[in-house]
Amino acid sequence: MCLGVPGKVMSVDGLVAVVDFWGVQKQVSLHIVDEPVVPGDYILNHVGYAIRKIPQEEIAETLAMYDELLDGKPEDLMRQDVESEVGASRERPS
């Protein structure tokens, strides 16, 4: 229901941050985010407001959790190996 876009905080001035979204920068309000935000953090933006600071470690943990759903089968482990190899070699065209 709500468009949320992740971006990286470039600078913070009071309750206003400049956030980079893949090369496009925009001012984002920090009025409703519930944790201190510093440059280098990642936040989720909705209509110009940061609604959540995204902890980096959670990203790897989420992916691990998804892979657990596939666990318990030997071919899945093999598949994961193939996946990570395929994943590593895949680059997006600019």
């Binding site: 468009l3 876009v5 979204f21 893949w22 090369g23 496009v24 925009k26 933006n45 065209p93 600019s94």
Partner: peptide, 15 residues
């Protein structure tokens, strides 16, 4: 489909 990073970002932001 080639999309520049900036256009992709603006597209995501604006939906």
């Amino acid at each position: 489909v080639p999309v520049s990073e900036a256009a992709r970002a603006a597209g995501e932001l604006l939906g």
